[in-house]
Each structure stands twice: as structure tokens, then as C-alpha cells.
């Protein structure tokens, strides 16, 4: 640090819609999406606050408060978050609030820390906007787990060449008229065919980081509609906890739609 008269560190004032603020926010959202271990990708809704502080000896610190909205892409979906559709508000949206800190040095941003909390919109808000819209169900509800198991069993039964196992349940809604459970869940491709799985399901292990995502609707009388898309090889830092019993469960962080993530880099 050069010796000289004391210079106070004064913050620089920039607007939330300043291109520099937007650049910092875009880098933060990209980082958040690529480092989440569960749930769905988020899109930036607004920059709530920004503070820019000088850093000694060089550079600047950017402190941002961001409002995010859940998209329809699960983290296993390789589609960039910019190309993912933001959930409509009537779909009981989950919003994220993140406090992020970035360092700007020589014109380039790097992440220093993030603290994010996500929570579903309040039931009162949804009912006010759309009285007939279904609300999110708790993910460990017996009806939800049964629906996922039935849907996955049906998919695996119809596709003998591949055997999928459950990674995590993403969303679930219990509907009435007709009584049904609508579920979304992430899956992983295993090293088994359907026939192999009938003989030794516990030996069917995840193969080559190939994930997929399924949507299903299960009516109480047993009518099941399920569709899954399987993606190509990816490098995701998901931790596998193989229990030896089906369904295989990988890194489920919670059974609600609320999550808190803190990380200092």
C-alpha cells in the first residue's frame, strides 16, 4: 500500500439498473445456478440493492441483494438458465432472495460469497390471484411419494432398454376434480436394463452422470401419465448416497420447497 495521506474509502453510487449492476447480477445468478445441488434453476427478477466499495490496494467490492424466480428447468437440465421459462405466478412460484458479494478487479468480476434463501409464494397470495390453482404439496407427503414411485415404475416398465432411478422430487401438487397428484422429479440413468433391474435392482448404479427429468400425473384410480426426458453426459457435483434400496436418493436437501444456502469462497 503506498504511503500517503489518509484517504477514506468512499462507496461509489450506482443505480440498480446500471449496466455494471446488471453485469454483476448476471454473473452472480450464473454462479448460483451452476453451484446449486438441488431444485430448479433461477432467473433474475430484480436487483433490490447494490453497494460498491473500494478495496485496498486495488479493485472494488460489489454487494448486491437479488430477487430471483424459479424457472421450469431442474438443475440437471443442461439448458442455460437464460433459455428456461420462468414459472407463471399461478403455478405457485418459488422465489429466491440472495445476498451476494463480488470482487471487480481489472474489469472482471469474481464471486466472493453468496447467501440465498428460497421460499414458495404464500398460499394467501395464490388464492387471491387464482382461487382454483393448486398449491405446492409437501414433498414427503405419502401421496406424493406413492405417485412418484408409481410413475417411475410405469416409465421403467415401458422402457426396457434403460432403468431410471430417482434423484429427487422437485415439485408436487395435489389436485381435486379429478383427484390426482401432479409430480416432477429428477432421475439418473443406471447401468441396468429393465430386465437387469428385475433381477438385482440394488446393483443398478448411476452411470456416467446421465440425468433426466420426469413429469407425471397420477389419478387416484391408478391412471398414470408419465413423460421423461433423458439428457446427455454432464459434469454435476451431486453427491450420491446409495442406500441399497430403491428408489435411489441422491442429495435430497429437504422435503419442503424452502432452502438456505450460504457459501464463502
Amino acid at each position: 500500500i503506498p504511503v500517503g495521506p489518509f484517504q477514506p474509502l468512499l462507496s461509489r453510487v450506482i443505480d440498480c439498473d446500471d449496466p455494471e449492476s446488471e453485469e454483476a447480477a448476471a454473473i452472480a445468478v450464473d454462479y448460483i445456478n451452476s453451484h446449486n445441488l438441488h431444485g430448479y434453476k433461477f432467473a433474475l427478477n430484480s436487483i433490490e440493492k447494490i453497494k460498491v466499495l473500494p478495496r485496498r490496494p486495488t479493485g472494488e467490492l460489489f454487494l448486491l441483494e437479488l430477487d430471483l424466480l424459479q424457472t421450469e428447468c431442474h438443475i440437471v437440465n443442461p439448458l442455460p438458465a437464460e433459455n428456461c421459462t420462468v414459472r407463471p405466478i399461478t403455478d405457485h412460484v418459488v422465489e429466491g432472495e440472495c445476498d451476494v458479494k463480488l470482487l471487480k478487479l481489472d474489469g472482471s468480476f469474481s464471486m466472493l460469497s453468496r447467501k440465498c434463501h428460497s421460499k414458495p409464494d404464500s398460499a394467501e397470495d395464490i388464492i387471491q390471484i387464482c382461487p382454483d390453482c393448486p398449491l405446492l404439496a409437501v414433498l414427503n407427503d405419502t401421496r406424493v411419494i406413492n405417485a412418484v414411485n408409481l410413475a417411475l415404475a410405469q416409465y421403467n416398465g415401458e422402457h426396457e432398454d434403460v432403468y431410471l432411478r430417482l434423484v429427487e422430487i422437485g415439485r408436487a401438487q395435489i389436485l381435486h376434480l379429478p383427484d390426482s397428484v401432479s409430480v416432477e422429479f429428477a432421475v439418473v440413468v443406471t447401468n441396468c436394463s429393465g430386465k437387469d433391474a428385475q433381477e438385482h435392482v440394488d446393483g443398478c448404479l448411476p452411470e456416467d452422470q446421465r440425468f433426466g427429468f420426469c413429469k407425471a400425473s397420477v389419478l387416484t384410480e391408478g391412471n398414470i401419465t408419465v413423460s421423461c426426458e433423458v439428457y446427455g453426459h454432464q459434469t454435476l457435483c451431486l453427491k450420491f448416497s446409495i442406500t441399497g434400496v430403491a428408489p435411489l436418493v441422491i442429495a435430497i436437501a429437504g422435503v419442503t420447497h424452502d432452502h438456505l444456502t450460504k457459501e464463502h469462497l
Binding site: V13, C16, N45, I50, D67
Partner: peptide, 25 residues
Amino acid sequence: PVATPPAAPVAKLPLCPGRIRHYQV
């Protein structure tokens, strides 16, 4: 002549929050 005192510097406040890209929750 009466000298007008210089106006005190006004601290600029950032225009925040920024625009809402999708909808207000």
C-alpha cells in the same frame, strides 16, 4: 454585496430497486 453561501453537496442516492423483469411476488 451579500455573498450566497455555496450549496451543500447533495449525496446522490442510487435508484433502487431496479426494474422487475417478470412479475412482483
